[in-house]
């Protein structure tokens, strides 16, 4: 059964369709990531699920129950905010205990649960501190403990790692995923960072302009994109798109699948004349920038691959037929994907 389900959900802010008719269901215990560019409506969708924003249209179900008109506290959810939103005047202990006090749990039970949550997140030693005496990573763990302590049906997380520096973020990603696996609580996680989404999500819902473009596992999203938006939003550098068949379709392929014709062996390969105008050495890998006809295309190799390409020259490159995706040049939809037409 779906833990969280939204049906034809919309939110209009004076003329802007922040969320535009979304259908989405999360399954029990999964880590579902909402991924999309800035301003695509991720936060708005999450706040509607949490009950902080009333939808203009549509319904929200949690645990099979319609909660569209219920206040946040009747929804059995916990939320972690980008700013962590700790209560600055309370100690860490009181921050974590706050949801329990609101639920009027007996004091002894409160203490037991706070200790349990603090133990899971390794912040037992910080319980008497105030939030301003904590580092960013510690604050994030307090916010998680406060979310965990009530044993909610769902965690809603809005870019909880965006306040951390790059190094902390990698380890926090690891911790957060491990934590979610341990407690097994259904999680909806908002981010605009594709690395976070690919690395943590059981499934990813890719959003653009208030709509969902595709829902699927990281593999499906990356290897089998539903349209050119998804194809170019994920992957860096993004998928190459080259017009073919007299402009009646676009051929898409990942830079790592684009190799010199000489290196192409076995299978069935499609050949392209490739004009290289620049190379970039990135330590672990090497990128070639160039054109196929008018369209620009990028090729990616491991840095130690023995590729001899002259800048300014045109040579034959190739892509496995199996690695080519075909898109409609106007709608951007995949032409060769079973099930396209009844998109999520």
């Amino acid at each position: 059964m779906a833990v969280v389900e939204v049906r034809d959900l919309s939110k209009r802010f004076d003329g802007v369709n922040a969320v535009d008719g979304i259908d989405l269901a999360s399954t029990d215990g999964e880590f579902l990531v909402l991924l999309g560019p800035s301003g695509c409506g991720k936060t708005t969708l999450l706040r509607m699920i949490g009950g902080l924003e009333p939808p203009t249209e549509g319904d929200i179900l949690i645990g099979g129950r319609v909660v569209t008109d219920l206040p946040p506290r009747a929804r059995q959810i916990a939320m972690v905010f980008q700013s962590y939103a700790l209560y600055p005047h309370m100690t860490v202990y009181n921050n974590i205990a706050f949801p329990l006090k609101a639920a009027k749990l007996p004091r002894a039970e409160q203490e037991k649960r706070v200790q349990w949550a603090a133990g899971i997140l390794g912040i037992d030693g910080l319980l008497q501190r105030k939030p301003r005496q904590l580092s960013g990573g510690q604050r994030q763990r307090v916010a998680l403990a406060r979310a965990l302590v009530r044993e909610p049906t769902v965690f809603l997380l809005d870019e909880p790692l965006s306040n951390l520096d790059a190094q902390r973020r990698a380890s926090a990603r690891d911790e957060l995923q491990g934590f979610q696996r341990r407690v097994g609580t259904t999680t909806i996680y908002v981010t605009h960072d594709q690395v976070e989404a690919m690395g943590m999500g059981d499934r990813i819902a890719v959003m653009d302009q208030g709509r969902i473009r595709q829902v699927g596992t990281p593999h499906e999203i990356y290897d089998d994109p539903a349209d050119t938006f998804v194809a170019t939003f994920l992957g860096s550098p993004p998928m190459n798109l080259v017009p073919a068949d007299g402009g009646r379709e676009l051929l898409g392929f990942r830079p790592e699948h684009f190799v010199p014709w000489k290196a192409a062996m076995g299978d069935e390969w499609i050949r392209f004349p490739y004009h290289v105008h620049r190379t970039e050495y990135l330590g672990a890998e090497r990128l070639l920038y160039g054109e196929i006809g008018e369209a620009s295309a990028v090729a990616r190799f491991p840095a130690n691959a023995d590729i001899a390409v002259e800048i300014g020259s045109t040579s034959d490159f190739a892509v496995r037929r199996a690695d080519l995706k075909r898109f409609h040049p106007e709608t951007g939809l995949r032409l060769d994907r079973p099930g396209n037409g009844r998109r999520a």
């Binding site: 946040p72 939103a85 706050f98």
Partner: peptide, 25 residues
């Protein structure tokens, strides 16, 4: 901050708890 008020809402605080535990302090 709006986030703090939202957090109190999500954490299950009713009107009086929000006033006396969050806003006034």
């Amino acid at each position: 901050p709006q986030d703090v008020k939202d957090a109190a809402n999500v954490d299950g605080a009713g009107f009086f708890r929000q006033v006396f535990s969050i806003r006034i302090p």
